[in-house]
Amino acid sequence: MTAITRLTVLIPEVEPAHWWQCARQNRSGAVIDRALRRHTDAVVRRLRMRS
Rank of each mutant, 00 (worst) to 15 (best):
29 G>W: 01
26 N>H: 11
20 W>C: 13
25 Q>W: 03
14 V>N: 02
43 V>H: 09
22 C>Q: 08
7 L>E: 07
13 E>C: 04
50 R>Q: 11
36 L>V: 03
15 E>I: 12
46 R>P: 06
30 A>Q: 04
18 H>W: 06
40 T>P: 01
50 R>E: 12
18 H>P: 02
48 R>V: 14
31 V>M: 00
41 D>Q: 09
47 L>V: 14
15 E>W: 05
37 R>Y: 03
27 R>C: 14
24 R>T: 15
41 D>E: 11
4 I>Y: 07
45 R>D: 11
29 G>P: 05
29 G>R: 00
11 I>E: 01
3 A>F: 05
1 M>K: 05
28 S>E: 01
10 L>V: 13
38 R>K: 12
46 R>L: 05
47 L>E: 08
29 G>K: 00
48 R>G: 15
31 V>H: 00
22 C>K: 08
12 P>A: 07
11 I>W: 01
36 L>S: 02
29 G>A: 15
25 Q>L: 13
2 T>F: 05
4 I>S: 13
17 A>Y: 04
47 L>C: 13
48 R>D: 14
5 T>K: 05
50 R>L: 10
7 L>G: 07
30 A>N: 02
33 D>W: 00
51 S>Y: 03
50 R>V: 14
51 S>H: 04
42 A>I: 03
24 R>V: 14
17 A>F: 05
31 V>K: 00
1 M>E: 09
10 L>A: 13
25 Q>M: 13
2 T>I: 11
26 N>R: 07
21 Q>P: 03
45 R>C: 11
26 N>W: 02
51 S>V: 09
44 V>K: 00
32 I>D: 01
13 E>A: 11
4 I>L: 10
14 V>Y: 02
28 S>H: 09
44 V>Y: 01
2 T>S: 10
32 I>R: 00
49 M>V: 13
42 A>T: 07
47 L>W: 06
8 T>I: 12
19 W>C: 12
37 R>E: 11
19 W>A: 15
49 M>L: 10
21 Q>W: 06
7 L>C: 11
38 R>Y: 06
8 T>F: 04
26 N>P: 11
24 R>Q: 13
20 W>G: 13
18 H>M: 08
20 W>P: 04
49 M>Q: 07
36 L>E: 02
46 R>T: 15
51 S>L: 04
29 G>L: 00
41 D>T: 14
35 A>H: 01
13 E>S: 07
8 T>A: 11
28 S>N: 10
8 T>K: 06
22 C>N: 09
35 A>W: 00
48 R>H: 12
39 H>E: 10
37 R>V: 15
51 S>N: 05
37 R>P: 09
50 R>I: 14
33 D>M: 01
6 R>S: 15
37 R>G: 15
39 H>M: 04
2 T>W: 03
1 M>C: 10
23 A>F: 08
11 I>L: 10
10 L>I: 12
27 R>A: 15
5 T>Q: 09
8 T>C: 09
47 L>Y: 07
26 N>C: 14
48 R>Q: 12
22 C>F: 07
8 T>R: 06
43 V>N: 10
31 V>S: 00
36 L>D: 03
3 A>W: 02
7 L>Y: 06
44 V>D: 01
2 T>D: 07
35 A>G: 08
36 L>Q: 01
5 T>C: 10
13 E>V: 10
32 I>M: 02
9 V>W: 02
